[in-house]
Design a protein around this nucleic acid. Structure first.
Lengths: 161, 161
DNA sequence: AATATATGAGACCTTATTGGTCTTATTAAT
DNA sequence: ATTAATAAGACCAATAAGGTCTCATATATT
């Protein structure tokens, strides 16, 4: 299991859309800017989210993305696994057939248990909780606003690294 | 967090040495063959384990590796983190300074909690438990024995994939 | 209908990491 | 001295991550 950049972006995107509210159409550009995601990359990520039935994509002028499901019904696990596939901590648990010893190996059981625990933790967190609890994206918006006022709309990307 | 091949090999190596017993010198070749690890790769892995104070490496003729610590005092977490570094599930938790929102972000807290839970699980498993519970390496030895008798010592590598 | 504006889909590219091999020391037993 | 073992690290191929770019398509507006 490794949380890729794409998955982190997807979570940000979903938080932004959750805050907008279910069914509210929001342009890709707006999300990309406000959540600090490379716009083209967001397009690719959105396709995964759409395929998973989390968002709907509207093409054409005044197009964009909108949340299909209620934020309360979307778990962090759902979004993460949409982006990186089903979570496994090691190959042995992912493909038991490829592991000669899985059927009676203590190590295997440890990984299996840890994996189940991790997935449960992520499953218990929904996006309405995430937006209710704190404003995870706020600082980006703040930084961007500052940049806007000070530099009149020059490069808006603020580095993550 | 991603369990690399090197880490899996390290666990196997430590299981084999644990079964041999603390302080018992075992050649790299023997471990490599019995645990099905590429010998040169095992050399590199052993260096990490030695640097971490888990094993001692004896050079020269009749050299090899031996366990320094009591298997009961070695946790799975210790071996895993020796090989892949301290476990983090995402960048944001690993380097809070690089994340603009870590100080008040709900997502951050979820990852932090999941990470702690995972590390605790691995910390609670010691190598004496692993060898007492089941014989995780036995099938390799069995397969290798078969190959030996049938093919008179030709290529001994059995594919993992 | 034509145009402007938005995203879709996927080819493509660069860089980092993984997983390993190979070569040249170095060390110790005989 | 010779032989047998590991040390150390350079080196390499394959894969995946992270992102960009181009062309196609869809829709609103005129």
């Amino acid at each position: 299991m490794r949380l890729t950049r794409a998955a982190e972006y997807a979570i940000r995107c979903m938080i932004y859309l959750s805050r907008q509210g279910q069914g509210v159409l929001t342009s890709r550009q707006e999300i990309a800017q406000q959540a600090n995601i490379p716009p083209h990359f967001l397009a690719k990520i959105a396709q995964d989210l759409a395929r998973a039935g989390l968002i709907e994509i509207r093409q054409g002028a005044r197009g964009g993305f909108l949340l299909i499901k209620d934020p309360a019904a979307i778990s962090l696990l759902e979004v993460v696994e949409t982006m990186i596939g089903e979570i496994f901590l090691n190959d042995c648990v992912a493909r038991p057939a490829s592991c000669k010893v899985h059927y009676h190996c203590a190590v295997h059981r440890v990984w299996q248990g840890a994996r189940d625990q991790l997935r449960d933790s992520l499953r218990q967190v929904s996006f309405d909780q995430l937006i209710a609890d704190a404003s995870c994206l706020a600082p980006y918006q703040h930084v961007l606003l500052d940049a806007d006022t000070r530099e009149k709309g020059t490069a808006k990307r603020t580095d993550l690294q």
